[in-house]
Amino acid sequence: MEHALRDELLALFKGKLTRPTALYLETCARCGVCTEACHAYASMPLPKYAPAHREEVVRRIYKQYFKWHGRIWPAAGECKTLDETALDELKEAACSCTG
């Protein structure tokens, strides 16, 4: 992915980063309780359909570019660089329920 496009996408990401979004991204402890409450996961029990995993796809990019530990120790949080595969994951996470 070209730098200019990545910067543009990150600016878009930052524009969507409201207080609730940041709170949800920071607060999740990945306990997995959401898997027991999600009807989509109940019908298709695959990790990629778990609500926390969908959020994790976004969080990994958030950690990489908007948090300190993404720069200090990316492996600890499995941070993700924004590239074509990340975009595919984001699309899958956002649209697999609604089509």
Partner: peptide, 18 residues
């Protein structure tokens, strides 16, 4: 030990274990 088993295992990242 919960994090050794799916689905929590699939959601966990190294810092959770650490």
């Amino acid at each position: 030990f919960r994090r050794f088993v799916s689905p929590t295992k699939d959601l966990s990242v190294p810092e959770d274990y650490l």
